[in-house]
Amino acid sequence: MLSRQELYSALEQRHGKEIQRKFAAASVVICGLGGLGSNIALSLARAGVGHIHLIDFDRVDISNLNRQQYFISQIGQYKTDALSETLKKISVCTEITSQCVKLTEDNINILAPYEIICEAFDKAEQKAMLVNAVLENFPDKYLISGNGMAGLYSSNDITTRRLSDKFYICGDGKSDISDGMGLVSARVAVCAAHQANMILRIISGSFDA
């Protein structure tokens, strides 16, 4: 069994002591555990982010397996439970907490304890609801949203943009799930990696997109 200290030392060797100290002190909440959220969570856990809070109300379905980080054996489980289980196999340096709940404007205060908020929903109206609610209620928090990653279009269309001081959007801004073939593993992962990388950059103290 790997001890926390052994893994932390290995992470320090990879990332440097100062960066790892910042990663370990950070707290991130991930809203939505689909193709974006599950991939983002894995990247943050591997980096040794200190606390990841997971929010989703859904269960793992067969239709998720084309792009989301779940296993066949997890079909039917709540995504919060399934992903927590996987993340704990990746890192003993990350505290994983979760809430199986549908996030709305009425319970948005759930996000209050976290310094960085990651929007990873799949429906356009839900994305807009969350972004508006966070920017109105928590203007001092960092918000990283994913928007536009459907189809098999070029990876190079996916970018990270800084819209205002603490609000970033990753994606191509236009490819819609309803337009064509839907979501494909690699391109969703590209967008998720943009979001995860921006989060790690913010934690490390680099704020440019």
């Binding site: 939505g32 689909g34 193709g35 974006l36 959220g37 990873a120 929903f121 799949d122 429906k123 356009a124 109206e125 994305k127 807009a128 972004v131 508006n132 920017l135 109105e136 203007p139 994913g146 928007n147 536009g148 990653m149 459907a150 819209l163 205002s164 959007i169 801004g173 236009k174 490819s175 819609d176 799930i177 309803s178 839907g182 979501l183 969703v188």
Partner: peptide, 27 residues
């Protein structure tokens, strides 16, 4: 951020800079 409740109240003036983010489905 311009709160949705103010969309009908706030009138835009010369020199204002507006960014409209249109969200699309997928995640």
């Amino acid at each position: 951020i311009l709160p949705k409740t103010k969309y009908s109240d706030v009138v835009l003036n010369d020199g204002d800079i507006v960014e409209i983010v249109r969200f699309v489905g997928g995640g």
